[in-house]
Amino acid sequence: MRIKALVIRIIRQFVRDKRTLAMMFIAPLLILTLVNLVFSSNDYEPKIGVVSDQQMVVDKLKSSDKAFIIYQKRSEAHQDLSEEKLDAVLEVELPSTTITLEGSNPTANKASIMMIEKTLKTMPAQDTEKTKVNSEILYLHGSAEMETFDYIGPFLIGFFIFFFVFLISGVSFLRERTTGTLERLLATPMRRWEMVVGYVLGFGIFTILQSAIIVSFAIYVLDIMMAGSLWLVILITLMLAITALSLGTLLSAFATNELQMIQFIPLVVVPQVFFSGLFTIETMADWLGPLSYIMPLTYGGEAIRDIMIQGDGWGDIYGNVLVLLGFSLLFMILNVLALKKHRRL
């Protein structure tokens, strides 16, 4: 009897809280759909530059697959490789064959090597024998020893910082509302923007610490591959944290309790996993690509990976920093507007 009463009460509470209900049913579907779209996508199509003095080899490769792009000059091919327009450069200058892989993305590496091997196998015997003689694989970035963690590590750093800062800042801003202190503050001459900026700065101090600790741990303790500057990685993670911070405080305006704040995770945080560099965006369904542009983690994850694996400097990543800064400012402005709900001034 008492159990029945409890069950009825829980059912009633659930029905009242339509959002939690929707979250239970819709969120898993959303995520399953995303995973499906990400994993059931097409194979990676590598782009391979070919430089060769053997006209016959060039013709064969050209006709065998559209993946092969013929270059006249070796320097041009390598230029495109470093600009990530190509995944690999195949140089056939008998008797030696050299494959230079871009190296940052294991999926692309594997796909390129498979494509080259497959194509060379179809060649007439005398060519294959020659090309097999001195085949050498070089890496522009990374190396054959690069572990999976070296590739996903940079993404994980960005993701965890984003995730935790989002949740913690959101919940604490929410508490300000549920404990009545927000109202108390709104009875003071404090301006709405001052409140938002204060929050970002206050939490910002901790996010600086957090970024420094996580990045240093990954590099010095977990021994993750690190080609670029430690400071730049900390800068990017800090920018990501501030974006998460401003987004968390913004969204807390649309939650009435901690549970509802947590419900934003599958809606806001999880989708970003798929676009933040863990999976190759190029292989996703076409319409998903543009979606990655509105995800802060896309820019953060990409920049962290480029610094850690490719050793990119400030010149290469400042665009990403600006985008993250833009996101933060946008979220902060929206938060100032959202606080209008509580006080007009």
Binding site: G180, T181, R184, L185, T188, P189
Partner: peptide, 16 residues
């Protein structure tokens, strides 16, 4: 806002 500096407000809930 200017006038609000002249007001002391104690809310019903202990906003602490």
């Amino acid at each position: 806002l200017n006038t609000m500096t002249q007001i002391g407000f104690m809310a019903q809930s202990d906003a602490l």
